[in-house]
Write a protein that binds this DNA or RNA. Sequence first.
DNA 1: ACAATATATTCAAACATTCTTATATAATTA
DNA 2: TAATTATATAAGAATGTTTGAATATATTGT
Lengths: 113, 113
Amino acid sequence: MRSLGQRIELLRLIAHPVRIKLLEELTKGVKCVSDFEEFLEISQPNVSQHLSILRTHGIIDYYMDGRLRCYFLKDKMIPDVLEILKRDYTGELPAPACCPVTKKGKYHGKRRH
Amino acid sequence: MRSLGQRIELLRLIAHPVRIKLLEELTKGVKCVSDFEEFLEISQPNVSQHLSILRTHGIIDYYMDGRLRCYFLKDKMIPDVLEILKRDYTGELPAPACCPVTKKGKYHGKRRH
DNA sequence: ACAATATATTCAAACATTCTTATATAATTA
DNA sequence: TAATTATATAAGAATGTTTGAATATATTGT
């Protein structure tokens, strides 16, 4: 299993618009490079570069189909992260109680915001 | 509500070891800068810099308590992301069926890996 | 008012990321 | 075997991130 540090690294790696789209597509099924090239509007080398980043970190993998490389999703964390990106988060977390205890919070002066 | 692009941006912002630890601490309650300074082993300016990044993106906020700044979590997405980082993901996703259909996948030659 | 405390800001150096362009490789078809 | 197709890799410019060091600000205590 990956360490916390490795997971943070994964998070950082996938936090890129193109890579999110690639992964989003891969949750729907196997895709080859030129499938992506068409649907994203970026160059072939750039698609390959992004796929390469994802692959060298074990997030995706591929098998060969003739001269096509058929990519697929490998990491279980990805669908869960993608799901969060789609969740409906309206509003904010409830503000904390008015007199919290921070370690040094013995101060009794005025409070502002 | 934030756009997908903004959420990806958020993901990128929190994908940093120090900022994850800051946020992790904030899920437990309000904290001031010197609380963090003590428990992480980084300089005070660096703590402030990270907090500032989180704050300017609406992820956290603070109120004043004397000369302390009491920080708290504001964004609802954060606890969910942190929860995923702790989940137990063992093994990998099931490999795709052996004969998938990519757009160009009409090829009938040999398959390798 | 002055000193002390808590925190923020600024700047620059080191480093990492991203994209483009050009080129390479590997498999297939003619 | 030569041409074509699908994809990868390399190199480099542009840009962004991270951190340390120095300094600034704001609030409280004396």
